[in-house]
Amino acid sequence: MKGISKKPGSKYILPAIIGLALLAVILVAVTYTIGDTSALSFKQAMSNQEYNALLIERLKSNLESDRLKAENRALLEGKLEDAQLLATRDAKYSNVDPATAWAIKQTAIAQATASPIQSTKIGIQVTGIIDDRPSSEFSRKDRFSSYWVQDFENTRLFIFVGHEKDNPEQGIIAIVIGVPRVHPDIRFKVPGNTGKLKLESAEGDWLYISAESGAEFKFNKFTYQLIDARTGEEIPVETPEGTVKESYP
C-alpha cells in the first residue's frame, strides 16, 4: 500500500491534539478556581439590626400560623415584643456617623494611653473546706463532693474527696498542688466499699472524712496517711496513681 503514505509529521498530530486538550482542561481548571473565590472568603455575619428585623418578621409569621399551640402564643408574643425593643435600641446605636465615632474614639484612646490600666488582683482566693464539687472538666472519671483548699507562698494545695463516677462504692481522695486542670497529681483509692466520701472538718495537718458506709477517716495533708478515725489504726492504701508535678508546699 505504498500509495497511502503518511505525510511527514502526521504521527505528531494525535499527541498534539491530546496535549492541547490537556492544556485546555488545566486552563479551565485554573479559570474555574480563580473565579471561585469562595475558598478564600467567609460568610459575613449580619448586624444585630438586620437580625432583629428578620427575627421580627419570622415571629410575626409564626404567630399567624394555625400550627402554633395556644399555650405558646404568649411566649412568642413576648419574644416579639423583646425583639422590637432590641431593634429600637440597635437602631439607635447603629446609625452613628463614622467620622464622629472616630473622633470620640481617638479621645478615648488618648485617655487610655495616658493612664494605662494596671494589673489588680480581683476576687477572693477562698481557703478551707468547700462544700461543692470542682468544675466538671477536672478528673472526669470521679465525682467529688467537697474539697480542701490551702494557700502557700507560691502555690495552692487542693484535696478532693468523693467516689469513682462509674463505681460509687469506690471512695477516692485526689490531690493537686498548683492548678487543677484535667487530672489530679495523685489519686488514692480508699480501701473497702466506703461509698461516697465527704470532708467534715480539718484540724492541723489532718482532714476528717466521713463515708457513706458509715466509716470515718482522717487523712494527713502532707504525709498522706489514712487513719481509721474510730480505732486510730493506719489503713494501708494501694500505691496511688500519679506523682506530684510541683514541689510540695
Partner: peptide, 18 residues
C-alpha cells in the same frame, strides 16, 4: 461557607488588664 470564628474564653482571672 462558614463564617470567620471568634474566640470565646474560659476565664481564669478578671484582673482589669487581663
Amino acid at each position: 461557607i462558614a463564617p470567620i470564628h471568634s474566640y470565646s474564653l474560659y476565664i481564669k482571672s478578671i484582673d482589669n488588664s487581663e
